[in-house]
Design a protein around this nucleic acid. Structure first.
Lengths: 339, 339
DNA sequence: CTGAAAGCGCTTACAG
DNA sequence: CTGAAAGCGCTTACAG
């Protein structure tokens, strides 16, 4: 574990430490012959450049900060994996920090990451308004949003076309014959919640089905949220024939509520989710849902942020909107539903 | 965003940069009066110390490397969250690297983390033999294992008492009257798989129930693994009355297999899992399982590694073994089972 | 209690 | 194509 420096290598190779530095950085201004000599010394000694010294002098840590809602949420864990893999490929490492989607903690994360010296930050879960992220962007610090975006469109982001995904799911229910369609939506101060709600409303409108306010409930993207909301929706006198969950977790909560109330899916009402999470496909669930490219979102976000880090002053914003895919399973039935 | 240095602050406060450094490091050898002057300048200028310079000169990055099986697996994501939170409290940040439990990738992770300059590494998923981790330990590099341990006991680790958890679950089945108990176990080249298998065997032995080799299958800790193994176990002429899943994912696969074969749980056979994952408690699952303190394992691992980093030459190993808890749910029935 | 000197291991200019 | 000089922003000794 003896630590060699660039000077040790230089001495061994009989050159100056500058030449060693050039070899290390693949600078072409080194004679092939010299390069070989140096390379040989490097491998023989098992020399490894000191990352800290390098980061210090170049002012580049090769570190990306990831502000994630909660690393223990599988959806975000999958984005994180996409981020990790691509970062690895591009020579970066990633430091994560869970914000719990809480403004105060988000600020703490940002401060912490800044202190650590990351070259840029990726946010998975901003609110439409998120002062900590907006300040960074205003300061010209490299930032990419993934999954959710800010209200202010002037920034780099990668999202799913949530509007379209939700529109497609709604239309599918309509085509099956459902007219009384409720939605348990994620909070609309989050771009994902808002866009999915908009997609739902637009599909109803396009098919001439009037909106019914009592069929729309906003809640958190969680099974508990779905459970509570479903208990309200399912005891309505004029119960919806179909319920759209803002994501698969919400749908899961709806399933629990149905079981608690003695209702069957899809016999008593149809159900859809969003995200195509692992459990959606399981034999006990069979949830119609919208799949989005979760891993890819993370991967693309890294490409953009590295781009931004390398050529600082981009004067345009990268906006990547990925197309979702409706996955049809048994939870919404396959036939025209009549009442 | 103007970046000040320690010298700018010194000039503003009318002291030497050394005094500023002392204030920054809470060195007591500064007069209260001087300290205040410096503090004032620091806050007024919004000075932030340069982490890279500090890391470079102190040779301490305040970074912990986390080699995790797969960050997108909820079990590991929860460990990671425990690690993150405690690291944050202790002034460290964590860089993760997914190994996919593959020796080659594990080596790549270690190399990458070393290059990044982490002060220590935590491994969540070592095999009983894991050259990359063992080499680090042999070199005196701070390493803590969490969840799984190496065969070589001479290292720091935090695990659940997997033997006991499995023993308890087996005994519970025996007490309910089951005698034909099968196990679909995680691979026994992993300490978790091995210890759970041992607990099962010991419980049978203690209750005078002979082992039946055809009732024991090893597979990966995954739903797919459980599914395939269950299809073998459930078509045995003398089918087991109860199946123990090596973890909840395996149990989930068993449930799918049961459904595919038209069998009901617990009517046709009882089922247990391990980990008390989120879905185990859901109304469609109701899985008897063994809960372990996943988040806490991560948290404790960080305490140990920071301890190790700070006082390098510990000559004893921290070994923390947490007690699991049997959680009884409907999947194994509540009554004496007779055949 | 405070400061002047030296240096951590690299890279960025500048000469040749 | 190669090297000598200077410096990144801190901290670690060493003086006083």
């Amino acid at each position: 574990m003896k630590k060699y420096t660039i000077r040790d290598v230089a001495k061994a190779a009989g050159v100056s430490h500058m030449t060693v530095s050039r070899v290390l950085n693949n600078n072409p201004r080194v004679r092939a012959n010299t390069r070989e000599k140096v390379q040989k010394a490097i491998t023989e000694m098992g020399y490894e450049p000191n990352a800290m010294a390098r980061a210090f002098v170049t002012k580049k840590s090769q570190l990306i900060g990831l502000v994630v809602s909660d690393i223990s949420n599988p959806f975000y864990a999958e984005i994180s994996r996409g981020i990790e893999d691509k970062a690895f490929d591009l020579g970066y490492s990633v430091i994560f920090c869970s914000s719990d989607e809480n403004t105060h903690r988000t600020e703490a994360c940002v401060k912490n990451l800044l202190r650590t010296g990351v070259d840029g930050m990726i946010f998975t879960s901003v609110h439409l308004k998120e002062p900590a992220a907006e300040k960074l962007i205003a300061d010209g610090f490299p930032v990419v949003l993934v999954n959710r975006k800010l209200r202010n469109p002037n920034c780099h982001y990668v999202t799913c076309n949530n509007f379209q995904g939700s529109y497609d799911a709604t239309e599918h229910l309509i085509n099956l014959g459902y007219k009384k369609i409720g939605i348990i939506s994620g909070y609309s101060h989050l771009s994902t919640g808002l866009d999915r709600l908009k997609g739902y409303k637009k599909a109803l409108e396009d098919h001439g089905i009037p909106q019914r306010p009592e069929y729309i409930i906003e809640t958190s993207f969680s099974a508990d949220g779905g459970f509570e909301a479903a208990k309200e929706l399912l005891v309505l006198k004029d119960r919806p024939e179909a319920i759209m969950g803002g994501n698969d977790y919400i749908a899961l909560g709806v399933m629990d509520a149905a079981e608690a109330l003695g209702l069957s899916i899809p016999e008593d009402f149809a159900l859809t989710g969003f995200d195509n999470t692992d459990f959606a496909a399981r034999s006990r669930t069979k949830l119609t849902t919208v799949s989005q490219k979760i891993y890819e979102m993370g991967s693309i976000a890294v490409q953009i942020i590295v781009d931004t880090i390398d050529r600082k002053n981009l004067d345009y914003a990268h906006k990547v909107v990925l197309n979702p895919n409706l996955i049809i399973r048994e939870s919404c039935g396959y036939q025209l539903h009549k009442k």
